[in-house]
Design a protein around this nucleic acid. Sequence first.
DNA 1: AATCCTTATTGAACTTGACTCGAAAATGCC
DNA 2: GGCATTTTCGAGTCAAGTTCAATAAGGATT
Lengths: 243, 243
Amino acid sequence: MATKAVNLETQRAKLERKERAILDAARAVFVEHGFDGARVSEIARHASIGEGTIYSYYESKAELMLAVLQQFWDGLTLEAEAVMASTNVEGFFERLQALAQYHLNTVIENGDFINLTFALRRNNSEVSVSRDHLRHYVAVFDQLFRRGQDRGELRQDAILWQARDVFYGTLEYSARSIEMTMDGERHLRQQKPVVDQMVSLFQAHYGAQHETTTIDESDLTRLSSQLDSLSEKFDNLDKRLSR
Amino acid sequence: MATKAVNLETQRAKLERKERAILDAARAVFVEHGFDGARVSEIARHASIGEGTIYSYYESKAELMLAVLQQFWDGLTLEAEAVMASTNVEGFFERLQALAQYHLNTVIENGDFINLTFALRRNNSEVSVSRDHLRHYVAVFDQLFRRGQDRGELRQDAILWQARDVFYGTLEYSARSIEMTMDGERHLRQQKPVVDQMVSLFQAHYGAQHETTTIDESDLTRLSSQLDSLSEKFDNLDKRLSR
DNA sequence: AATCCTTATTGAACTTGACTCGAAAATGCC
DNA sequence: GGCATTTTCGAGTCAAGTTCAATAAGGATT
């Protein structure tokens, strides 16, 4: 009985260890060669198992890739949540800055994975990183934003998904720009202006001071012309009076 | 002699027609099935030619895809330039709105192609849409932005590539959000808020009025109190006069 | 310990699909 | 018409993902 249980344990552990080995090997090979470039045989060699064995753990190469990506995104989500938890300032914009900094850096460092994610989603329509994983990841932003609205730091009429697209869209494109031009390892220095821009952009456009109405030039010019006409009236009156 | 020339002409025309046929067939099949899903044999069938013939026009499946994409992007660039040319208002923000509307609509309508572009770039590192084509496309934005700066409508210290990433990054993500949630054909209605947000976001963050200082409530209250005091003076004068 | 049964592993065989190549058809030229 | 060049073709080659029948390993039962 005891041996039974022990053996079951070790057996299960063995399988899990083997599964992790496959996942790690796959991760390495996929990152190095991309999805199409990766050879299942090479993954098997890396994991020190036969090629056919992989298929008793995963249905197909695409599903293996999917598992790798899900593990990756789950890790990212945990990290993002940790960043938010460890940022002990309360203000929305400080926290936004921390999140932007984390995300931008992540996208640059793990560009391969981000690319692979969308590449898979695009190529292989049946197999794609489940929406849930991505949604779970961006939920960190969503929660932050809603809290900013609750605290009155953000306009009540701001639309969450639009703000989210501004945030992640801009950061992904910026990451590409940074990757493109910068080759040195002093990435952080290049990232700062992008992060700062993001924060001030949110302040300018989603900050609560704009809540009731958007201030644009027309408001100012209207006020200005009102002032002018009033001033004119006053002058006329003044003239009339001093006559 | 005459026949020679004519034959050369018709022959060249024939070849070109055949090349166009291949390109059109490839376009259709790639859009329908994606890069990996597309079968070269199906493309050949669509173009009514033998499978091998394709390879006397294009080195490989990837290069064929590349040709399709380049044709696509060149078309987009021409359209974007046409939009700018036909928008005869002068103001930066009106023109930005037109460009944003065009781009967002395009990305939604031709989402397949956009996806294919980046999918190829990611999968097949040797073959990718030449940077020139994309650069040529975004040059429309760049030119608009620089002109806005020259005309004094935009802050002089704004950084072009950052603004560009905000513009295209946000619009691409927004397009995805719109595609995701909206299934009806009334896309234009869904696009408007995104476009409007983009314009007001640029006004708030890149507009020249912010160059020296941000417009906030203090500006308004100052103006307002000026008006109040002037109004009071006027009333006093009026009273004095009618007495 | 021997036997039996279940499960895991394997790599050779199968399949699919991009690509090659030698032959044949078409075209151009005199 | 006859020779040269170009173009077209699809059967054959090759590479890589996937299957599967045989084998090995592990665990239960006697």
